[in-house]
Design a protein around this nucleic acid. Structure first.
Lengths: 344, 344
DNA sequence: GTGAAAGCGCTAACAA
DNA sequence: TTGTTAGCGCTTTCAC
């Protein structure tokens, strides 16, 4: 970078001086906000080139009272579900000229707090929230600071914000339906910590769907981890092992997510069981890699990338001044692979 | 957020007025940069509370000529290698008071360019680069704009910057050594596009290590994909299938990364082969989930999280004015699982 | 202990 | 078509 005498950065002033015009003329040139004479333009162009001038983005946005960036609240970027969602968010944001600041909390209170503070201090123009704040008071701080918000994969527990979710009840019902169609009636549920309503709904819908069909649900077959911070795959593994401690086993298992399903499959295989011969498994999400496990995982697909993308679209409408907003509910899709067998 | 009359945001001015002191006194209060009388402090505290004042981070940093954020250049956040690395970067950054802006390019020129422009325009104080810019001229723009840089998982092709890499040659040699120890001499290499030196080194080291041991390398057993943008797992799958078209097959396969290995395993299993009975597989990276595939993947571990973390540490020294810098080379570790068998 | 004033790099009325 | 001026919200001398 070229440096000017004073402090380093080449500013619009330096360009103006070099070109023999005023600051505002250079600004007009940069923003095409006035028509300038060809000669002036040329002089400015040369000055810019000579000094290697680049407008200072932050100053520019500061003046315009915006940051052109969005915050992305997620619990864990190494969870493929969130990674795929993030990609949708990042792509949509970039397309509209916004940057994405990563607020990935590792499910930790401290991190939540520190990110919320950044939001309160105006670091971003809007926030995509795919995460349930553990500490309730932080939600209030987020709401109170008046920053535009969109809830993605989080149910709109308050109706003040746009949101994008998949129909989780329906997704879970499709899973049960599918297993039912294959002749299964003895089905277990393995769940990660239901710390978001999304997960609560899956669990409830599991129970409701089972009941609706007259299938009994053994308490010991509904295993839900409590400790929020654990790795999802490890949760699945440990729940899988716990399930195997039962006297009688179900013929099929539905997991709260693919990661849990994968962990559970590992537990089953490690115990010498065969999938789907000895037990069928259905996941939830359809993460990348789901089809690469052995056996490939039958699962309920969530349109993660699209959810992220749509979330940003909804958010930016708010950011750019619209007051109306939408709450989208997307459709689940069952992806049949090789982790389930037909009984008999 | 409380609003003042003029434009919305409550500023330090409003607080000063409310408390009956000057702006600078409030500033001193906020920054503990002068000792104030208890009464003044109290009045300011009350005013802040009453108005729900939050200092404006951007203005603050602008004044201080910094952004307190770092850019993270990666090709794909849904590639678990980069997701894990990103976590290290994010954690270290947060710990030091910096935010992370995601520059994930999807291996696309356009994206590269648009991110480089943001860097040139001063969006960040420093950049973690774990990505080889496809377009050479963009590297120059990055270098020329004088922003502090650290290269992570990228070899320092110029010696002007700090860097963190694992010893890729050694890692690959360990893989061959390991297979050798198990009695393998017929080994194939499946490689993703060697668009970074890191990958080139793995490939070269594969050839060198084979040669050193007097193992012949069949040309048809060294398969390397060219198309940069393809998904790594799919690359592995297609290379695996291509390998199977050979008349004679190797007894073992080394992949350029775990994702490629996983794809290849899928191809082998789909063709009715058993792993490791019919063919042994060694991966590279040890991504999360590597132990959950079937069979679990023997691989060379890269300390991804630590690399990200260390990268940020190196970078921040530069950002904070130090001129000396380090180039760290980390040690690989072979993680033995179940994807390889002893011959005989 | 407190405040006046200048200025970070830029945009945007408004004037000329 | 070009320039003057007044800030955006804050920090930071430097004086009192």
């Amino acid at each position: 970078m070229e440096r000017n005498k004073r402090n380093g950065r080449v500013t619009i002033r330096d360009v103006a001086r070099e070109a023999g015009v005023s600051q505002s003329t250079v600004s007009h040139f940069l923003n095409h906000t006035a028509s300038l004479s060809p000669e002036t333009k040329q002089r400015i162009r040369e000055a810019i080139k000579k000094l290697h001038y680049r407008p200072h983005l932050v100053a520019r946005n500061f003046k315009k009272r915006r940051t052109a960036s969005l915050g992305l609240f997620i619990p864990d970027i190494t969870n493929l579900f969130y990674a795929e969602l993030s990609r949708g968010v990042a792509d949509a944001a970039r397309e509209k000229g916004y940057s994405v600041i990563l607020y990935s909390t590792s499910y930790q209170r401290e991190m939540e707090k520190s990110f919320i503070e950044l939001v309160e201090q105006g670091q971003v123009d809007g926030v995509v929230v795919s995460y349930s704040l553990i500490e309730d008071s932080l939600w209030n701080r987020l709401f109170d600071c008046g920053v535009p918000l969109v809830l993605v994969d989080i149910y709109p527990f308050t109706s003040r914000y746009p949101s994008v979710v998949m129909d989780n009840e329906k997704g879970m019902e499709m899973a049960i339906d599918y297993l039912h169609g294959l002749g299964h009636t003895e089905i277990a549920y393995l769940g990660e910590p239901p710390y978001v309503l999304t997960l609560v709904k899956r669990q409830r819908s599991f129970l409701a769907s089972m009941q609706k069909r007259g299938f009994s649900v053994k308490e010991k077959w509904v295993l839900v981890e409590e400790r929020t911070q654990l790795n999802r795959v490890e949760i699945g593994f440990s729940l899988g092992k716990r399930l195997l401690q039962n006297q009688s086993l179900p013929t099929a298992v539905v997991a709260s997510s693919d990661l849990v399903a994968i962990g559970a499959m590992k537990a089953f295989l490690s115990a010498g069981m065969k999938i789907p011969e000895d037990i069928s498994v259905v996941g939830f999400d359809d993460i990348l890699l789901a089809s690469y496990f052995h056996p490939s995982l039958t699962t309920i697909r969530q349109p993660k990338y699209e959810m992220g993308k749509m979330g940003v679209e909804f958010l930016l409408r708010l950011v750019e001044g619209e007051s109306a907003f939408q709450n989208a509910i997307l459709e689940p899709l069952l992806v049949e692979r090789n982790s389930c067998r037909r009984l008999q």
